[in-house]
Amino acid sequence: MKLRKVVSHINIPVAAMSDIAFLLLIFLMVVSALDQSQKLKLNVPTVVHTSSISQDQVFTVFVDKDGFYYYKGEEKDVNEISFLYDKHASLFPDAILQVVGDVDTEYDVIDLLLNTLRKNGPIDAAFIAKTKKDEEAADEH
């Protein structure tokens, strides 16, 4: 009896691989948030000890060295920030005000922000800062 030679071609379908890769790429680009402090070129103050700040329910205000306030990349005045913070705090009861200031920002500006936001009740706040170690690590990069 003559045996029939079976020729099999095993192929892994790779046609959809580029679609998956591009979908992953689009997902990464959409979910990644831009670091606003880099956009504003803020030089964050240095302190002796820092602790990590929880990013849950956080309300971040950037204050540049000229004393202008920024929220989500847009310049706002202190009353607008106060209104937005109240709106945020009504949605998130454990809201934390996160102040990202520059070393050359005058403290009066930060004080005005804290006092304006505190008018409608107590607030939780954190000052974003880095340690000397963080600064050295950043310089190496």
């Binding site: 790779v14 580029s18 890769a21 591009f22 790429l25 820092t50 602790s51 990590s52 939780d124 340690t131």
Partner: peptide, 29 residues
Amino acid sequence: QSDIAFLLIIFFVITTSFALKTGLKLDMP
């Protein structure tokens, strides 16, 4: 095309830095 896409992904993954926020937490009333 898939090679290009994966190279782009690898580039983004390597160059992305996680914004770990550290600072002074104020213990407010």
